[in-house]
Amino acid sequence: MIRRLFVILLLLGLGGVFAGLVAGYSPDDTLNLTARYYADHTAQDIGAANIVTAIIVTYRGLDTLGEVTVLFLTAAIVGLVLAQSRRKADAPQRPLPPSGELLTTGTRLLVPLILLLGVYVFVNGHLTPGGGFQGGAILASAVLMLLLTDPLLRIGHGLIAAIESTAGLLFVGIGVLGIVLAGGFLDNRILPIGDLGNLFSAGAIPIIYSIIGLKVGAEFSSMLATLAETEDL
């Protein structure tokens, strides 16, 4: 009881702070200096129509490398934590209800389309909303749908690891290529910038985002597969 009172007091205090923040919020009318720089220079410097993508892949490319690394470490740790709980191949399995003909056929119909949508999202990252992270999540959703139809499906961890590490190496390789050929690490101008709005424009951004998409998709898929392979408790 005393505990709950303490929690409520704490939240009231925090609520007071938040109310002060909302009351003191004064909306800007114009962009600040950094945002103005991005708005004015992205089209000439990077050639990407989506300014958010330009920031993520090029202006702050090193942060994205760190982010992908964090995600990789997370997937690896999830695999490590759950490694001992892996279901044995000959362990008794409780009877699973069959997924039914409709869901099976629907999966076979929809999985290729979902994969295609994922590819579309990350290839078009520099023109439309979306990019590697979203596209990767959609690819992992296709894997999820396969797992739903057949919960005992084994997804080859070797293939996932191969895609993942190849994509990681290519990502760093393109970054280093940027130092050699252009202005710095992960500079996209190793390829011609092209015309704003074309699919083959913005230098190396579509390639980098495709690599990120494959890598993120492989990481999320490995997380899902690891969780699906644990034993029932």
């Binding site: 992270f133 979203q134 999540a137 959609i138 959703s141 999820l144 999320f220 899902l224 969780l227």
Partner: peptide, 23 residues
Amino acid sequence: APDVAMTEAAIGSGLTTFLFFFV
């Protein structure tokens, strides 16, 4: 913020919910 909207739909709501239900 369409970029954030797509990320939230695909990752924040989609994958998180799926992981929860798997566990």
